[in-house]
Design a protein around this nucleic acid. Structure first.
Lengths: 201, 201
DNA sequence: AGGAAACGGCACGTGTCGTGTTGACAGTGC
DNA sequence: GCACTGTCAACACGACACGTGCCGTTTCCT
Protein backbone atom coordinates (compact mmCIF):
# COMPACT_ATOMS: atom_id res chain seq x y z
CA UNK A 1 0.00 0.00 0.00
CA UNK A 2 2.55 2.51 1.10
CA UNK A 3 6.04 1.67 -0.24
CA UNK A 4 7.26 4.93 1.30
CA UNK A 5 9.29 6.32 -1.59
CA UNK A 6 12.80 7.45 -0.90
CA UNK A 7 12.84 11.21 -0.17
CA UNK A 8 16.53 11.48 -1.05
CA UNK A 9 15.84 10.49 -4.62
CA UNK A 10 12.93 12.86 -4.95
CA UNK A 11 13.07 15.29 -7.83
CA UNK A 12 13.20 18.70 -6.20
CA UNK A 13 12.43 20.26 -9.55
CA UNK A 14 9.13 18.40 -9.82
CA UNK A 15 8.37 19.13 -6.16
CA UNK A 16 8.72 22.88 -6.72
CA UNK A 17 6.85 22.83 -10.01
CA UNK A 18 3.92 21.02 -8.39
CA UNK A 19 3.63 23.42 -5.45
CA UNK A 20 3.92 26.45 -7.72
CA UNK A 21 1.38 25.11 -10.20
CA UNK A 22 -1.06 24.24 -7.43
CA UNK A 23 -0.98 27.71 -5.90
CA UNK A 24 -1.16 29.44 -9.28
CA UNK A 25 -4.15 27.42 -10.44
CA UNK A 26 -5.99 27.90 -7.15
CA UNK A 27 -5.56 31.66 -7.31
CA UNK A 28 -6.60 31.71 -10.97
CA UNK A 29 -9.61 29.41 -10.94
CA UNK A 30 -10.48 28.97 -7.28
CA UNK A 31 -9.60 26.04 -5.09
CA UNK A 32 -12.72 24.03 -5.91
CA UNK A 33 -12.24 24.24 -9.66
CA UNK A 34 -8.70 22.88 -9.62
CA UNK A 35 -8.11 19.19 -10.30
CA UNK A 36 -5.07 17.03 -9.71
CA UNK A 37 -4.89 16.51 -13.45
CA UNK A 38 -4.68 20.25 -14.04
CA UNK A 39 -1.90 20.63 -11.48
CA UNK A 40 0.03 17.80 -13.11
CA UNK A 41 -0.42 19.31 -16.55
CA UNK A 42 0.69 22.79 -15.49
CA UNK A 43 3.67 21.41 -13.61
CA UNK A 44 4.70 19.20 -16.55
CA UNK A 45 4.40 16.20 -14.31
CA UNK A 46 2.54 12.93 -14.27
CA UNK A 47 -0.50 12.57 -12.07
CA UNK A 48 1.15 9.49 -10.62
CA UNK A 49 4.04 11.59 -9.32
CA UNK A 50 1.64 13.77 -7.34
CA UNK A 51 -0.13 10.78 -5.83
CA UNK A 52 3.23 9.29 -4.94
CA UNK A 53 4.04 12.13 -2.54
CA UNK A 54 0.67 13.49 -1.45
CA UNK A 55 -2.57 11.69 -0.61
CA UNK A 56 -4.96 14.33 -1.97
CA UNK A 57 -5.15 17.65 -3.74
CA UNK A 58 -5.82 19.30 -0.39
CA UNK A 59 -2.49 18.10 0.98
CA UNK A 60 -0.65 19.59 -2.00
CA UNK A 61 -2.28 22.98 -1.66
CA UNK A 62 -1.86 22.91 2.10
CA UNK A 63 1.88 22.40 1.73
CA UNK A 64 2.09 25.26 -0.72
CA UNK A 65 0.13 27.37 1.72
CA UNK A 66 2.19 26.46 4.76
CA UNK A 67 5.33 27.39 2.88
CA UNK A 68 3.84 30.71 1.88
CA UNK A 69 2.35 31.52 5.26
CA UNK A 70 5.32 30.43 7.30
CA UNK A 71 7.37 33.46 6.40
CA UNK A 72 5.21 36.40 7.43
CA UNK A 73 3.29 35.53 10.57
CA UNK A 74 5.75 35.74 13.46
CA UNK A 75 4.99 37.59 16.67
CA UNK A 76 7.29 40.54 17.26
CA UNK A 77 8.21 41.61 20.80
CA UNK A 78 8.69 45.33 21.10
CA UNK A 79 7.37 45.34 24.65
CA UNK A 80 3.95 46.67 23.63
CA UNK A 81 1.43 43.83 23.36
CA UNK A 82 -1.21 45.83 21.60
CA UNK A 83 1.19 47.05 18.93
CA UNK A 84 2.76 43.61 18.48
CA UNK A 85 -0.54 41.77 18.15
CA UNK A 86 -1.78 44.43 15.78
CA UNK A 87 1.34 44.00 13.66
CA UNK A 88 1.04 40.24 13.50
CA UNK A 89 -2.67 40.17 12.83
CA UNK A 90 -2.35 42.81 10.15
CA UNK A 91 0.19 40.58 8.43
CA UNK A 92 -2.07 37.55 8.74
CA UNK A 93 -4.99 39.51 7.36
CA UNK A 94 -2.97 40.88 4.46
CA UNK A 95 -1.32 37.59 3.46
CA UNK A 96 -3.87 34.94 4.27
CA UNK A 97 -7.29 36.08 5.40
CA UNK A 98 -7.92 38.63 2.69
CA UNK A 99 -6.88 39.16 -0.90
CA UNK A 100 -6.63 36.50 -3.59
CA UNK A 101 -5.27 33.80 -1.29
CA UNK A 102 -8.09 34.08 1.24
CA UNK A 103 -10.51 32.03 -0.84
CA UNK A 104 -7.83 29.40 -1.36
CA UNK A 105 -7.36 29.17 2.38
CA UNK A 106 -11.11 28.97 2.81
CA UNK A 107 -11.15 26.15 0.28
CA UNK A 108 -8.61 24.18 2.29
CA UNK A 109 -10.56 24.70 5.49
CA UNK A 110 -13.68 23.58 3.65
CA UNK A 111 -11.94 20.38 2.57
CA UNK A 112 -10.95 19.60 6.16
CA UNK A 113 -14.66 19.30 7.00
CA UNK A 114 -14.77 15.95 5.24
CA UNK A 115 -11.11 14.91 5.37
CA UNK A 116 -9.94 14.25 8.93
CA UNK A 117 -6.35 13.59 7.87
CA UNK A 118 -6.15 16.96 6.17
CA UNK A 119 -7.71 18.54 9.24
CA UNK A 120 -4.92 17.08 11.38
CA UNK A 121 -2.29 18.40 8.99
CA UNK A 122 -3.86 21.84 8.98
CA UNK A 123 -3.77 21.98 12.75
CA UNK A 124 -0.31 20.48 13.08
CA UNK A 125 1.39 22.55 10.40
CA UNK A 126 -0.48 25.84 10.48
CA UNK A 127 -2.79 26.43 13.40
CA UNK A 128 -1.28 24.84 16.47
CA UNK A 129 2.17 26.45 16.15
CA UNK A 130 0.68 29.89 15.64
CA UNK A 131 -1.88 29.55 18.40
CA UNK A 132 0.91 28.42 20.73
CA UNK A 133 3.05 31.38 19.70
CA UNK A 134 0.15 33.75 20.29
CA UNK A 135 -0.42 32.31 23.76
CA UNK A 136 3.27 32.60 24.58
CA UNK A 137 3.30 36.22 23.56
CA UNK A 138 0.18 36.92 25.63
CA UNK A 139 1.57 35.14 28.68
CA UNK A 140 4.68 37.23 28.41
CA UNK A 141 2.55 40.35 28.36
CA UNK A 142 0.63 39.09 31.37
CA UNK A 143 3.84 38.44 33.27
CA UNK A 144 4.94 41.99 32.47
CA UNK A 145 1.73 43.41 33.87
CA UNK A 146 0.23 44.47 30.56
CA UNK A 147 -2.69 42.07 31.02
CA UNK A 148 -4.68 41.21 34.12
CA UNK A 149 -3.07 38.43 36.19
CA UNK A 150 -6.12 36.21 35.78
CA UNK A 151 -6.48 36.82 32.04
CA UNK A 152 -7.42 33.60 30.22
CA UNK A 153 -5.01 33.56 27.28
CA UNK A 154 -7.02 30.87 25.51
CA UNK A 155 -10.06 33.13 25.58
CA UNK A 156 -7.98 36.04 24.37
CA UNK A 157 -6.81 34.09 21.33
CA UNK A 158 -10.36 32.98 20.57
CA UNK A 159 -11.61 36.54 20.77
CA UNK A 160 -8.78 37.90 18.63
CA UNK A 161 -8.82 35.35 15.81
CA UNK A 162 -12.37 33.98 15.96
CA UNK A 163 -14.07 36.96 14.35
CA UNK A 164 -11.57 37.03 11.48
CA UNK A 165 -12.24 33.43 10.49
CA UNK A 166 -15.95 33.87 11.16
CA UNK A 167 -16.22 36.71 8.69
CA UNK A 168 -14.08 34.94 6.11
CA UNK A 169 -15.83 31.57 6.16
CA UNK A 170 -19.36 32.95 6.47
CA UNK A 171 -18.85 35.50 3.68
CA UNK A 172 -19.68 38.42 5.95
CA UNK A 173 -17.36 40.81 4.18
CA UNK A 174 -13.72 41.68 4.71
CA UNK A 175 -12.13 43.06 7.83
CA UNK A 176 -10.86 46.55 6.99
CA UNK A 177 -7.54 47.45 8.66
CA UNK A 178 -9.11 50.25 10.67
CA UNK A 179 -11.64 47.82 12.09
CA UNK A 180 -8.87 45.38 12.93
CA UNK A 181 -7.09 48.10 14.95
CA UNK A 182 -10.21 48.81 16.95
CA UNK A 183 -10.83 45.09 17.37
CA UNK A 184 -7.37 44.35 18.80
CA UNK A 185 -7.48 47.41 21.01
CA UNK A 186 -10.86 46.50 22.44
CA UNK A 187 -10.09 42.84 23.10
CA UNK A 188 -6.76 43.48 24.77
CA UNK A 189 -8.21 46.48 26.59
CA UNK A 190 -10.88 44.23 28.04
CA UNK A 191 -8.13 42.16 29.66
CA UNK A 192 -6.17 45.15 30.96
CA UNK A 193 -5.15 45.02 34.61
CA UNK A 194 -7.43 46.96 36.96
CA UNK A 195 -5.75 50.32 37.62
CA UNK A 196 -6.52 51.06 41.30
CA UNK A 197 -8.68 48.60 43.22
CA UNK A 198 -12.07 47.72 41.76
CA UNK A 199 -13.61 44.80 39.97
CA UNK A 200 -16.53 44.45 37.62
CA UNK A 201 -18.30 41.04 37.45
CA UNK B 1 -33.61 25.80 -18.69
CA UNK B 2 -35.85 26.77 -15.81
CA UNK B 3 -39.53 25.97 -16.43
CA UNK B 4 -40.21 27.03 -12.81
CA UNK B 5 -42.49 24.22 -11.71
CA UNK B 6 -45.76 25.04 -10.07
CA UNK B 7 -45.41 25.04 -6.26
CA UNK B 8 -49.12 24.45 -5.80
CA UNK B 9 -48.90 21.08 -7.48
CA UNK B 10 -45.90 20.04 -5.46
CA UNK B 11 -46.15 16.77 -3.58
CA UNK B 12 -45.80 17.74 0.07
CA UNK B 13 -45.27 14.11 0.94
CA UNK B 14 -42.19 13.87 -1.27
CA UNK B 15 -41.01 17.27 -0.04
CA UNK B 16 -41.06 16.10 3.57
CA UNK B 17 -39.55 12.71 2.80
CA UNK B 18 -36.65 14.34 0.96
CA UNK B 19 -35.84 16.77 3.76
CA UNK B 20 -36.07 14.05 6.39
CA UNK B 21 -33.96 11.63 4.39
CA UNK B 22 -31.34 14.29 3.72
CA UNK B 23 -30.93 15.19 7.38
CA UNK B 24 -30.93 11.56 8.51
CA UNK B 25 -28.30 10.50 6.01
CA UNK B 26 -26.10 13.47 6.81
CA UNK B 27 -26.18 12.70 10.52
CA UNK B 28 -25.52 9.03 9.87
CA UNK B 29 -22.76 9.18 7.28
CA UNK B 30 -21.53 12.75 7.33
CA UNK B 31 -22.46 15.49 4.92
CA UNK B 32 -19.64 14.78 2.48
CA UNK B 33 -20.51 11.09 2.14
CA UNK B 34 -24.13 11.68 1.19
CA UNK B 35 -25.14 11.70 -2.48
CA UNK B 36 -28.27 12.91 -4.18
CA UNK B 37 -28.89 9.36 -5.28
CA UNK B 38 -28.83 8.15 -1.68
CA UNK B 39 -31.26 10.86 -0.59
CA UNK B 40 -33.61 9.92 -3.42
CA UNK B 41 -33.40 6.23 -2.55
CA UNK B 42 -34.04 6.78 1.17
CA UNK B 43 -36.93 9.12 0.45
CA UNK B 44 -38.46 6.72 -2.07
CA UNK B 45 -38.25 9.42 -4.69
CA UNK B 46 -36.79 9.89 -8.13
CA UNK B 47 -33.54 11.82 -8.47
CA UNK B 48 -35.30 13.95 -11.04
CA UNK B 49 -37.78 15.10 -8.42
CA UNK B 50 -34.98 16.43 -6.24
CA UNK B 51 -33.36 18.28 -9.12
CA UNK B 52 -36.71 19.76 -10.04
CA UNK B 53 -36.95 21.68 -6.80
CA UNK B 54 -33.35 22.17 -5.66
CA UNK B 55 -30.24 23.00 -7.64
CA UNK B 56 -27.79 21.00 -5.53
CA UNK B 57 -27.50 18.65 -2.58
CA UNK B 58 -26.32 21.61 -0.50
CA UNK B 59 -29.58 23.45 -1.10
CA UNK B 60 -31.60 20.45 0.08
CA UNK B 61 -29.64 20.05 3.28
CA UNK B 62 -29.67 23.78 3.88
CA UNK B 63 -33.46 23.84 3.70
CA UNK B 64 -33.65 20.95 6.14
CA UNK B 65 -31.31 22.82 8.39
CA UNK B 66 -33.11 26.14 8.21
CA UNK B 67 -36.33 24.40 9.16
CA UNK B 68 -34.67 22.73 12.11
CA UNK B 69 -32.79 25.79 13.30
CA UNK B 70 -35.64 28.21 12.84
CA UNK B 71 -37.52 26.98 15.86
CA UNK B 72 -35.02 27.29 18.70
CA UNK B 73 -32.87 30.32 18.15
CA UNK B 74 -34.96 33.33 19.08
CA UNK B 75 -33.75 36.08 21.34
CA UNK B 76 -35.71 36.33 24.58
CA UNK B 77 -36.16 39.66 26.32
CA UNK B 78 -36.29 39.33 30.08
CA UNK B 79 -34.60 42.69 30.55
CA UNK B 80 -31.21 41.19 31.33
CA UNK B 81 -28.99 41.21 28.23
CA UNK B 82 -26.38 38.90 29.65
CA UNK B 83 -28.92 36.27 30.62
CA UNK B 84 -30.82 36.59 27.34
CA UNK B 85 -27.76 36.29 25.15
CA UNK B 86 -26.53 33.40 27.22
CA UNK B 87 -29.88 31.68 26.76
CA UNK B 88 -29.92 32.17 23.01
CA UNK B 89 -26.32 31.18 22.45
CA UNK B 90 -26.69 28.11 24.62
CA UNK B 91 -29.57 27.04 22.42
CA UNK B 92 -27.56 27.69 19.26
CA UNK B 93 -24.64 25.74 20.66
CA UNK B 94 -26.82 22.83 21.73
CA UNK B 95 -28.83 22.57 18.50
CA UNK B 96 -26.44 23.62 15.78
CA UNK B 97 -22.83 24.25 16.74
CA UNK B 98 -22.27 21.08 18.74
CA UNK B 99 -23.58 17.55 18.78
CA UNK B 100 -24.35 15.40 15.74
CA UNK B 101 -25.68 18.25 13.62
CA UNK B 102 -22.60 20.43 14.02
CA UNK B 103 -20.59 18.56 11.42
CA UNK B 104 -23.53 18.72 9.03
CA UNK B 105 -23.64 22.48 9.46
CA UNK B 106 -19.88 22.61 8.95
CA UNK B 107 -20.35 20.63 5.76
CA UNK B 108 -22.84 23.16 4.42
CA UNK B 109 -20.53 26.05 5.27
CA UNK B 110 -17.73 24.16 3.53
CA UNK B 111 -19.84 23.82 0.41
CA UNK B 112 -20.52 27.55 0.33
CA UNK B 113 -16.80 28.10 -0.22
CA UNK B 114 -17.17 26.95 -3.81
CA UNK B 115 -20.88 27.56 -4.42
CA UNK B 116 -21.73 31.27 -4.36
CA UNK B 117 -25.45 30.67 -4.81
CA UNK B 118 -25.54 28.43 -1.76
CA UNK B 119 -23.52 31.04 0.13
CA UNK B 120 -26.19 33.62 -0.65
CA UNK B 121 -28.93 31.25 0.52
CA UNK B 122 -27.07 30.52 3.74
CA UNK B 123 -26.77 34.21 4.50
CA UNK B 124 -30.29 35.09 3.43
CA UNK B 125 -32.08 32.27 5.21
CA UNK B 126 -29.94 31.59 8.25
CA UNK B 127 -27.29 34.15 9.08
CA UNK B 128 -28.62 37.57 8.19
CA UNK B 129 -31.94 37.27 10.06
CA UNK B 130 -30.22 36.05 13.21
CA UNK B 131 -27.43 38.60 13.06
CA UNK B 132 -30.04 41.31 12.62
CA UNK B 133 -32.02 39.97 15.59
CA UNK B 134 -28.89 39.89 17.71
CA UNK B 135 -28.09 43.48 16.81
CA UNK B 136 -31.63 44.56 17.62
CA UNK B 137 -31.47 42.91 21.02
CA UNK B 138 -28.10 44.54 21.72
CA UNK B 139 -29.30 47.98 20.63
CA UNK B 140 -32.25 47.61 22.95
CA UNK B 141 -29.87 46.82 25.79
CA UNK B 142 -27.76 49.82 24.88
CA UNK B 143 -30.82 52.07 24.90
CA UNK B 144 -31.67 50.75 28.35
CA UNK B 145 -28.22 51.60 29.65
CA UNK B 146 -26.98 48.03 29.96
CA UNK B 147 -24.26 48.66 27.40
CA UNK B 148 -22.05 51.69 26.88
CA UNK B 149 -23.66 54.34 24.65
CA UNK B 150 -20.84 54.07 22.12
CA UNK B 151 -20.84 50.26 22.05
CA UNK B 152 -20.37 48.97 18.48
CA UNK B 153 -23.07 46.31 18.17
CA UNK B 154 -21.50 44.89 15.02
CA UNK B 155 -18.29 44.29 16.94
CA UNK B 156 -20.23 42.76 19.82
CA UNK B 157 -21.87 40.25 17.51
CA UNK B 158 -18.51 39.38 15.93
CA UNK B 159 -16.96 38.83 19.33
CA UNK B 160 -19.86 36.74 20.58
CA UNK B 161 -20.33 34.43 17.60
CA UNK B 162 -16.90 34.52 15.92
CA UNK B 163 -15.12 32.26 18.42
CA UNK B 164 -17.89 29.66 18.24
CA UNK B 165 -17.64 29.27 14.48
CA UNK B 166 -13.86 29.53 14.64
CA UNK B 167 -13.58 26.58 16.99
CA UNK B 168 -16.12 24.54 15.04
CA UNK B 169 -14.67 25.05 11.57
CA UNK B 170 -11.02 24.80 12.60
CA UNK B 171 -11.58 21.66 14.69
CA UNK B 172 -10.29 23.29 17.85
CA UNK B 173 -12.56 21.33 20.13
CA UNK B 174 -16.03 21.99 21.43
CA UNK B 175 -17.19 24.94 23.48
CA UNK B 176 -18.25 23.60 26.88
CA UNK B 177 -21.29 25.37 28.38
CA UNK B 178 -19.27 26.70 31.31
CA UNK B 179 -16.85 28.31 28.91
CA UNK B 180 -19.72 29.82 26.95
CA UNK B 181 -21.05 31.46 30.12
CA UNK B 182 -17.66 33.00 30.84
CA UNK B 183 -17.36 34.05 27.21
CA UNK B 184 -20.69 35.88 27.07
CA UNK B 185 -20.08 37.49 30.43
CA UNK B 186 -16.66 38.75 29.43
CA UNK B 187 -17.67 40.13 26.04
CA UNK B 188 -20.76 41.93 27.30
CA UNK B 189 -18.86 43.05 30.40
CA UNK B 190 -16.25 44.64 28.15
CA UNK B 191 -18.99 46.85 26.70
CA UNK B 192 -20.55 47.74 30.04
CA UNK B 193 -21.19 51.43 30.64
CA UNK B 194 -18.59 53.20 32.77
CA UNK B 195 -19.97 53.31 36.34
CA UNK B 196 -18.87 56.72 37.70
CA UNK B 197 -16.81 58.96 35.40
CA UNK B 198 -13.72 57.42 33.86
CA UNK B 199 -12.69 56.08 30.47
CA UNK B 200 -10.11 53.58 29.38
CA UNK B 201 -8.73 53.87 25.85
C1' DA C 1 -64.41 15.15 -16.03
C1' DG C 2 -60.62 16.46 -18.33
C1' DG C 3 -56.06 17.80 -19.00
C1' DA C 4 -51.84 19.70 -17.50
C1' DA C 5 -48.14 18.80 -14.75
C1' DA C 6 -45.49 16.46 -11.25
C1' DC C 7 -44.33 11.93 -10.24
C1' DG C 8 -41.17 7.19 -10.06
C1' DG C 9 -38.15 4.37 -12.80
C1' DC C 10 -34.56 3.85 -15.82
C1' DA C 11 -30.72 4.73 -18.88
C1' DC C 12 -27.36 7.66 -20.65
C1' DG C 13 -23.11 10.84 -21.41
C1' DT C 14 -19.69 13.43 -18.71
C1' DG C 15 -15.99 14.45 -15.62
C1' DT C 16 -12.96 13.36 -11.97
C1' DC C 17 -10.91 10.26 -9.21
C1' DG C 18 -7.17 7.03 -7.89
C1' DT C 19 -4.57 2.96 -9.70
C1' DG C 20 -2.05 -0.03 -12.99
C1' DT C 21 1.30 -0.64 -16.62
C1' DT C 22 5.16 0.54 -19.53
C1' DG C 23 9.52 2.10 -20.97
C1' DA C 24 12.95 5.96 -20.40
C1' DC C 25 16.12 8.09 -17.33
C1' DA C 26 19.29 9.36 -13.26
C1' DG C 27 21.76 8.40 -9.24
C1' DT C 28 24.47 4.85 -6.26
C1' DG C 29 27.73 0.78 -5.46
C1' DC C 30 30.81 -2.76 -6.97
C1' DG D 1 32.59 1.86 -16.41
C1' DC D 2 28.52 -0.91 -15.77
C1' DA D 3 24.57 -2.91 -13.70
C1' DC D 4 21.07 -1.94 -10.24
C1' DT D 5 17.45 0.47 -8.00
C1' DG D 6 13.89 3.65 -7.89
C1' DT D 7 11.74 7.93 -9.74
C1' DC D 8 10.05 9.85 -13.79
C1' DA D 9 6.26 10.97 -17.91
C1' DA D 10 2.74 8.95 -20.63
C1' DC D 11 -1.35 6.52 -21.28
C1' DA D 12 -5.24 3.39 -20.23
C1' DC D 13 -8.56 1.76 -17.10
C1' DG D 14 -12.65 0.88 -13.88
C1' DA D 15 -15.38 3.11 -10.35
C1' DC D 16 -18.37 6.49 -8.92
C1' DA D 17 -21.44 10.47 -8.71
C1' DC D 18 -23.26 13.99 -11.32
C1' DG D 19 -27.04 16.11 -13.99
C1' DT D 20 -30.33 15.25 -17.92
C1' DG D 21 -33.63 12.95 -21.09
C1' DC D 22 -37.41 9.90 -21.91
C1' DC D 23 -41.02 6.86 -20.54
C1' DG D 24 -45.62 5.68 -18.74
C1' DT D 25 -48.30 6.62 -14.44
C1' DT D 26 -50.57 9.24 -10.90
C1' DT D 27 -52.10 13.36 -8.82
C1' DC D 28 -54.43 17.53 -8.40
C1' DC D 29 -56.19 22.17 -10.18
C1' DT D 30 -59.86 24.14 -13.33
Amino acid sequence: MNPTPNPQRRSEKSHRAILDAAMELCVEHGYGNVTVEAIAARAGVSKKTIYRWWPTKGAVVLEAFVELAGTATRFPDTGDVVADLRTQMTAVLANILSGPRASVYAGIIAETQHDPALARELRAQLLDPRVAAARDRLRLARDHGQLAPDADVEMVVDLLYGPLYYRLLLHLGPYPPARLRAHVAHVLGSFAPAPPASAAP
